[in-house]
Design a binder for these strands. Sequence first.
DNA 1: CAATAGCGAAAAATCGATTTATCGGTTAGT
DNA 2: ACTAACCGATAAATCGATTTTTCGCTATTG
Lengths: 354, 354
Amino acid sequence: MANKEAQQRRPSIHDVASHAGVSAATVSKVLSGVTTVKPENAQRVLDAVELLGYRVDPLASDMRRAKRRIIGAIMPEFESEFFGQMVSELEGLAEQRGYTLVAASSRESEAREKEVLARMHDWRVAGVVLAPVRNEHGPAAAFMKANGMTGVLIDRVLADDAFDTVSADSAAASAEVARALVGMGHRHVLVVGLGQQAATVRARLDGFRSTALKLAPDIRIDVVLCESDVGPLRAMLHDYFSKGTERPTAVYSLFLKGTLVALSEFRRRGWHCPNDISLVGFDDAEWMQVTWPAIAAVVQPVRAIASNAMEVLFRRIEGEGGPPTARLEPCKVLMRESVGSPGNVPHSGGGDRQ
Amino acid sequence: MANKEAQQRRPSIHDVASHAGVSAATVSKVLSGVTTVKPENAQRVLDAVELLGYRVDPLASDMRRAKRRIIGAIMPEFESEFFGQMVSELEGLAEQRGYTLVAASSRESEAREKEVLARMHDWRVAGVVLAPVRNEHGPAAAFMKANGMTGVLIDRVLADDAFDTVSADSAAASAEVARALVGMGHRHVLVVGLGQQAATVRARLDGFRSTALKLAPDIRIDVVLCESDVGPLRAMLHDYFSKGTERPTAVYSLFLKGTLVALSEFRRRGWHCPNDISLVGFDDAEWMQVTWPAIAAVVQPVRAIASNAMEVLFRRIEGEGGPPTARLEPCKVLMRESVGSPGNVPHSGGGDRQ
DNA sequence: CAATAGCGAAAAATCGATTTATCGGTTAGT
DNA sequence: ACTAACCGATAAATCGATTTTTCGCTATTG
């Protein structure tokens, strides 16, 4: 069987060469489409390739090039739908161009982010798609700059003076959320965010605030921003609602985990959306449309971000110059049942049929 | 600055060698911990390494070994929490041993699974962690066998005669679910599953059925199994509930997307858990504990599966023989509020405080 | 008819490391 | 005193491809 030989050693380009009665150089030329090969020899090479089941070793093939056919992708985490989709998209796009995607998780740590990036550099990747833990000014971007790596920054970034960036248009989406909430009559909104992700969170907050204030100058906007982790946020939110202060009619969470925390806080207090309070979150998830009520969300354009990031990255890899670009992709805002008009009771205690 | 040189070319082992005044072979020996080097020279090498910021090129380093320091991981998808966590865990474990993890998604397609595996084989990975789309008897496992690859199968598998397997103990978990539901008085349960994932789905179904029938021989167990995709399942479930037949008091979904489909079907009909119907799903997700009601779920032991898979994989890589092992890791069953006793109304219309 | 251009393919260099073979030089053993 | 063992280190082979250089041969040209 082919079994036994296969176990031993895969055929190399020299095996193919000797089977075809030509040199290894000729085999390489045939396989890379160089035309200065006699058709007869080319055919014999192809036959030998077929016979032996030969496939080029990407590792050996990359040895001799300065830029290897590897793209590195560094995400803050793999557990969420958003980054999972992102990796999936990036993988497909890299593959289309004959590149291998090596994905790594920075686990929401800037220290680890830099380590992982250094490892990518060791591999001499052709380019890196970096979704920074915090923003474009972290140590990882500095490392890339210092080492002359080519890369593109995505997601938690706005613009950079050294690298192209691609991200969701947080400000525009937040403005749309503001229009919707104000339009429904909300005049007291709590915004929940995580300060660590400075770049985008600020854009989301400012986008919401400026539009809301323009439409309703009398609106009250409370902000609960947590600098560190999600854990403290839970406590801060609990405190916020425990204070005797007036309860807001709506909560706008600037990131997915904030939406979860808000929901669990509502649940603890027995509040239901949208009767007791409305809820909109940045970031959509599959489950949000099947729960009762369905949770309103800002849907990030994952595919657009991924394909534009790859597009611009490959242009840089191919040596295109020019100043770095900063792309913003439009989001979609899905106003689901978790949002209603304050005072109104469109649904009863949560038990009516839709 | 180091900037300019960095842009040009990274130092190679020869650069280090000439800086230290020794040969490349000596540098290699120092770095790999061979002791037959004069301490003085070793120090000079280390100094040169430090000075130049030298790091071994993993690609070049791997060239000369038969087994490269790369582990391939093939998952059916990246979008779900389960596989996201799995990749994250595997990455960490590979890293600990100085290996690079290259993850790829088979996108729930057996054809693609085989292609991706072939690509892993091209890279001559030391080993593969394969989470098959369907079960251990797919074309991918056959490919691995035929090509003498070393690997371990996880998740949607039970046991194999060629490869080690590690998966959740589906049968035991299902039995526990059965005990719980029967204990609460349920005598009519609908089980929802996807037949594509034959191996585990059958174990889950059988585990539930046998235990339920043993405890309550009069129990009625309906089964809605869909062979192909999730889409049809939605329609099948809709049909099932639309038939005049008696409504079951509980639904047990054998996989995550089934839980989502069931939830959305309940929502469409205005049914609420657990008053109108109880729901338990295989596979836990972060959101399940923050929705109202919280969804009961079987939690798969991701970390245990990942670490055992890597453990057994590395043993095989290091040449350990012996017959393939089949590990089953115990799950945890979290009975949350979506499950109640039939007839009872433990929570009012969904609006009471907990 | 000799010099040159052109073509196709082989030989050799290269990428950056690891590993094996080799080689002075010292020390120990007989 | 002569050989054997040994030590530390270098030269060279190797991994599997790609790319450059060289080379033999034919065809064109002055």
